[in-house]
């Protein structure tokens, strides 16, 4: 093997180890009881049993799924329709509108979370799925809109014209032509939104505090802040929480590369 390839292989190996080690640590630790963890050897399902006994895993997973799915559906609806309009409708001032949306990407969620909390208290949206969903939508929509605008700009005008000649209005062109061919961009939006929303702790801690609406990450956060912390139990929960994101990534990864390189070339 040429030295250059060996060098690249070594770098990739080191990067892989750095990325995979936390997963290895989580997997190994979750398979030990607290005492085995402290001894550094042994094998047990005790931490998994403890996790399911102390945390309503199914309920919290379902809460996470509801919040994630609703937020992503709303983001997709807003981003695709806005992206199509910004890319193809050529209305006056569309560049300015896009600039405003791109500007929204620069606002960190931490800077708006307190004003949003205060407002949502007044609107009775605390401890309500919809409150958290709205925050995720507000934070995720600008980037998703930017991505969809870029994608739709690459769709030939003739395709839109062909649809109009075939008997479609703009709405029909959007739903029956533009959306079906935007699968890579839609998949990219799903993956790039699902992972941060699923993993989010901050918004959940503020807006979904009650046990019946708590998401899984909030549940783990509560577990981590209890008086006696079980590291193996926490690792079991953490490992469990990575599975949905990994599944989503595996399902959509074949579209992801083409989606992420949108607009890079004609």
């Amino acid at each position: 093997m040429p030295p250059g390839r060996v060098f690249i292989f070594l770098i990739l190996f080191v990067v892989s180890v750095v990325i995979m080690y936390p997963f290895y640590f989580m997997a190994v630790t979750s398979m030990r009881s607290q005492s085995q963890y402290e001894l550094g050897k042994g094998f047990s399902f005790a931490s998994w049993i403890q996790l399911f006994q102390s945390v309503p895993v199914a309920k919290e997973m379902l809460n996470s799924l509801i919040v994630c799915a609703c937020a992503i559906v709303i983001i997709l609806v807003l981003a695709t329709s806005a992206g199509f309009a910004l890319a193809k409708a050529h209305f006056r001032g569309h560049g300015f509108v896009l600039l405003g949306i791109v500007g929204g990407m620069m606002i960190p969620v931490q800077s708006i979370i307190i004003p949003e909390y205060v407002n949502f208290v007044g609107l009775h949206l605390i401890n309500n799925y919809f409150g958290a969903i709205l925050v995720y939508v507000a934070v995720g929509t600008p980037f998703a809109t930017f991505l969809m605008t870029t994608y739709f700009r690459g769709v030939p005008e003739e395709l839109i014209d062909a649809g109009r000649c075939d008997g479609l209005g703009y709405g029909g062109v959007f739903t029956r032509i533009a959306l079906p061919i935007a699968k890579p961009a839609l998949a990219t939006v799903v993956v790039l939104q699902f992972i941060p929303i699923w993993n989010d702790l901050l918004v959940g801690l503020l807006f979904l505090q009650e046990p019946n609406v708590r998401t899984f990450t909030v549940g783990l956060g509560v577990l981590a802040s209890s008086r006696v912390v079980s590291i193996p139990g926490l690792m079991a929960g953490s490992l469990l929480s990575t599975i949905p994101a990994a599944v989503i990534y595996i399902i959509f990864q074949r579209y992801l590369v083409s989606g992420l390189t949108l607009g890079a070339s004609k």
Binding site: P156, E158, L159, D161, A162, G163, R164, C165, G167, G169
Partner: peptide, 16 residues
Amino acid sequence: PRDRDIAMIFQNYALY
């Protein structure tokens, strides 16, 4: 366009 009863063929074909 949809009410004009026309059919158009484009330079790049514009197939779906």
